[in-house]
Structures are given as C-alpha cells and as structure tokens.
C-alpha cells in the first residue's frame, strides 16, 4: 500500500489519474473504520488533508460553494444561515469528534444510503451540484444524478470531489432523523425538507429507506400543486391536516426500505410519514410567521 500526500489540488488530481484505485481520505471517519476492520485494502491511500481549498467555502449570495472537506462542525457554526437544512443534518452526524473531522465530500464519496447530508442536499433543490474534477477537467453533477446504487456514486475513477454547490436557502428548511439512541446513531431513516418560495417548489430527501438517498417526487409535486392552487405561498394560511396527512402518505410511499438490524421496513415507512408531517408543519409555521410579520 502506498500513502500519497499531494500538497495541491493539481497534484491530487494528477495522483488520482495515475492511481485510479487509490482511495481518497479526507476526515477518515469512513475510510479508517474500514481500514481498522480490514474491510478495505486499497493499493494506495490519497490524503486530501493538505489541500486547504477543500476546507473553504464561499457564498456569492445565491449559491454556496462548499469545499468537500469543510468539517460538519464548521457547517453548523458558519453556515446555519444560508444552509439551515444541511446544518441541522450536520448536527445529527456522529459525535462532536466525528463532526470535527467528517465532511460532506466524504459523505458523498461513501454514498451510503444512511449518509445524513444526502436528504438535506436533495431537499435543497434540483440545483444542487457536485463539482467533480479530474485531470480531464471539471464537471457539475446534478445531485439527482449523483447516487447510483448502494454505496455507489457517479464519480469516475480518476475524479475527486472539489466542492458542492448549494443554493442559499430562500425559505425554512428542516431535517429529522430516527435513531435508537439519543446521540451517535446511524440513521434508521431520515428526512430532509425545504420550502422554496422563490420558485414555488418544495424539496424532499429520504435517507436510509431505499438503496440510495432519494427524493419523494410525488409528495413534492402534490404539495407544490396545493400551495400554488390555494395561493398559500401568498397567504401563509394553515395547510390543514388533510394536506399534511397526504404529504406524509406520499413520502411514505416513495420509500422502499428493508428490514435490518437497525429497524424494520414497516417502522421506517411509518416514521417517514411522521417526520414528513412534522417537518412540513414546522417549516410552514415558520414561513407563515415570516409572511405575517412581513405583511
């Protein structure tokens, strides 16, 4: 095994091109567990810690470009305003020590269906892009095309994640996750939700309840329709239990969970419906408050 320590981004891309089977390591919170328990023995390890731009973010007012290795702790501290859903999700990841090391780049790299960033990124809308780069150039992968299978993503062998582009929130966002203990749990299932008043859409993301993270498309469409037809974006009026209930049902229907040691498929469906109803209620309450105080 080799240990590659590129000092710059270009060196990293060159190394990845030369050793396509090298395993990138950022915070190491996934990689090292696999090393310690002999799950993985890559030909080389490619350390990304020395590349400072990966730990930086920028915000042009409309979009946050989040460096792949910005640790969760900093997302919580520095980005709760523009990225409230992701910050809430970040706050549920592992423990303070894990949040000091792990980041969204690693979460995307691992592409676990239980990764907590994913539901928040999906909910943030269809204009979320993973910025992937290689010596061949840079491309922006729409988040909806990124997850391709259980722990599989659409990166090519020579590509590395440079950053994630996430629109700045234009409405309330929420994230909920089920675990069987009150800290340090991998999600039994999780749900991210965002209101996007600017374009009159809503975003959803389901975690740990399908082979990949996924969107509850019908639920989004249903709610978008109701909000538009009833002029609720403008009025901020109550949604009513029927709408909330139906939304929960559609989220539940979008999942295809399995039974495993962490929970049953039935429970996951049930809990998704509950979380969908609650997160919708919380965000909508916040939104109507904003509308009323603006009025």
């Amino acid at each position: 095994m080799e240990f590659l320590r590129p000092a710059t981004w270009d060196e990293a891309l060159a190394a990845k091109a030369e050793y396509p089977t090298a395993l990138p390591i950022a915070g190491g919170t996934d990689v090292m567990v696999e090393m310690n328990f002999d799950v993985h023995r890559p030909s080389a390890i490619l350390d990304l810690n020395r590349i400072t731009e990966l730990t930086q973010w920028s915000n042009d007012g409309g979009v946050v470009r989040l460096g792949a290795s910005v640790p969760y702790a900093r997302i919580i501290d520095e980005l709760s305003g523009p990225l409230p859903g992701l910050a809430l999700a970040a706050h549920t990841v592992g423990s303070p020590q894990i949040r000091n090391r792990g980041g969204v780049g690693g979460n995307l790299g691992a592409a676990s269906p239980a990764g907590d960033s994913h539901p928040a990124l999906l909910a943030a809308g269809r204009d979320v892009f993973v910025e992937a780069a290689s010596v061949r150039g840079t491309r922006l992968i729409p988040i909806d095309d990124f997850y391709v299978g259980v722990k599989r993503n659409s990166l090519a062998a020579d590509e590395l994640i440079r950053a994630v582009h996430i629109p700045v929130a234009d409405g309330p966002q929420q994230f909920s996750k089920i675990g069987t203990r009150n800290a340090m749990v991998i999600a039994v299932c999780a749900f991210g939700f965002a209101l996007h008043p600017k374009d009159g859409t809503v975003g959803t993301g389901i975690g740990s309840a399908a082979p990949t993270p996924r969107r509850a498309v019908e639920a989004e469409e249903y709610l978008r329709g109701v909000l538009a037809e009833r002029g609720l974006w403008e009025s901020g009026d109550l949604l009513g239990t029927e709408v909330i209930q139906r939304f929960g049902e559609l989220v539940k229907a979008a999942a295809s969970p399995i039974d495993d040691v962490r929970g049953t498929a039935d429970y996951r469906r049930h809990a998704l419906a509950v979380m969908a109803r609650r997160t919708l209620t919380w965000t909508w309450n916040d939104y109507s408050k904003q509308i009323r105080s603006a009025a």
């Binding site: 706050h91 549920t92 996750k177 009150n182 800290a183 749990v185």
Partner: peptide
C-alpha cells in the same frame, strides 16, 4: 426523545 436528531419539538 431523539435529542439532536430533531424529531420532535414537543409533538407526541
């Protein structure tokens, strides 16, 4: 219940 997993704001 759920703590930082943010599952309830008092509901249930």
């Amino acid at each position: 219940p759920g703590a930082l997993s943010n599952t309830s704001h008092g509901e249930g």
